[in-house]
C-alpha cells in the first residue's frame, strides 16, 4: 500500500487533504518528522496563507532539504496552492522591495494576478497539457482555486536531455500556470482536496503514477 505523508509545517486545513488522499486507498499521515517525510512513498506539500510565512514554516521543519533530497532521488512530491508557488524561484507577495526567495526548483516569479476581482476564488477550467497523466479522465472538469498570486509565465527552457515538463494553464484576468508534471515533482495551483470528485480522481492519478 502506498504511504503518503502530508508535510505539517503549520499550514491551514490539512485534515481535508488527509481525508481526500485516503480515498485513493493510500495510508496517509500528517507529520513534520524528517525521516517520515523522507521515507514515505509520496510527499504532499500543502500551503495556505502568505508566501513568506510558508517558506519560513517549511524551513523550520527542513522542508526545503526534504523536497530537494527526495527529488534528487526521484521520489514523488506534490505541491498544492502555496505549496506549488514555493517551488518557483521567487514571489513578489508582500515584498515591499523586490521579492521573497522560493525553493527555485523552477525559474520564474509568482506575481499578483491582474483581474477585476481578487482573490481568484471558485471553480475554473484548466487547459490540460497534452499527454497529461494528472488530468487523465478529468480534462474537462473544473477545479477549486483560491489565490491572488500565481506564476504567470513558464520560464524553464527546454533541454534535449530532459523530458519536457507538462504544464497546464488556467485564466483569471490573465493566463497562469494551473498545474505542472515534471518527473517526480507535481504541483497544482488549485486545491484537489476541495475539488469534489474531479479532485479525488486527480489524487488517484497521482498515486497511480507512483506505482
Amino acid at each position: 500500500m502506498t504511504s503518503v505523508v502530508i508535510l505539517d509545517y503549520g499550514s491551514g486545513n490539512v485534515r481535508s487533504a488527509q481525508r481526500a488522499v485516503e480515498t485513493t486507498g493510500a495510508t496517509v499521515s500528517i507529520s513534520a518528522d524528517f525521516d517520515e517525510a523522507m521515507n514515505c512513498d509520496a510527499l504532499l506539500v500543502p500551503g495556505v496563507g502568505a508566501f513568506a510565512s510558508c517558506m519560513a514554516g517549511l524551513k523550520n521543519v527542513r522542508g526545503d532539504q526534504i523536497i530537494g533530497r527526495r527529488l534528487a532521488g526521484s521520489r514523488p512530491v506534490l505541491g498544492i496552492c502555496v505549496g506549488m508557488q514555493v517551488l518557483f524561484e521567487k514571489s513578489t507577495e508582500h515584498a515591499e522591495s523586490g521579492f521573497h526567495a522560493g525553493l527555485n526548483e523552477w525559474p520564474g516569479t509568482v506575481d499578483q494576478l491582474t483581474a477585476p476581482v481578487l482573490p481568484h476564488m471558485g471553480w475554473n477550467n484548466v487547459s490540460c497539457a497534452p499527454q497529461s497523466q494528472m488530468f487523465t479522465g478529468i480534462a474537462d472538469e473544473r477545479f477549486y482555486f483560491v489565490h491572488s498570486y500565481a506564476a504567470r509565465n513558464w520560464e524553464l527552457d527546454p533541454h534535449e536531455k530532459l523530458a519536457a515538463p507538462k504544464v497546464s494553464w488556467s485564466n483569471h484576468g490573465e493566463n497562469f500556470v494551473a498545474a505542472v508534471e515534471n518527473g517526480p515533482l507535481w504541483a497544482t495551483q488549485f486545491h484537489p482536496e476541495k475539488s469534489g470528485d474531479a479532485g479525488l480522481t486527480l489524487l488517484a492519478n497521482w498515486i497511480a503514477a507512483i506505482k
Partner: peptide, 25 residues
C-alpha cells in the same frame, strides 16, 4: 470535498484557529 465556510459566534483569533484546524476552509 468542497469548500466549507463556518460563521456565527466567532469572537477571537483562537475561535478562527479552532475552526480552521477542525477542517473549515
Amino acid at each position: 470535498f468542497i469548500p466549507l465556510t463556518v460563521g456565527g459566534g466567532v469572537r477571537t483569533v483562537d475561535d478562527v484557529d479552532a475552526l480552521l484546524r477542525a477542517g473549515a476552509d
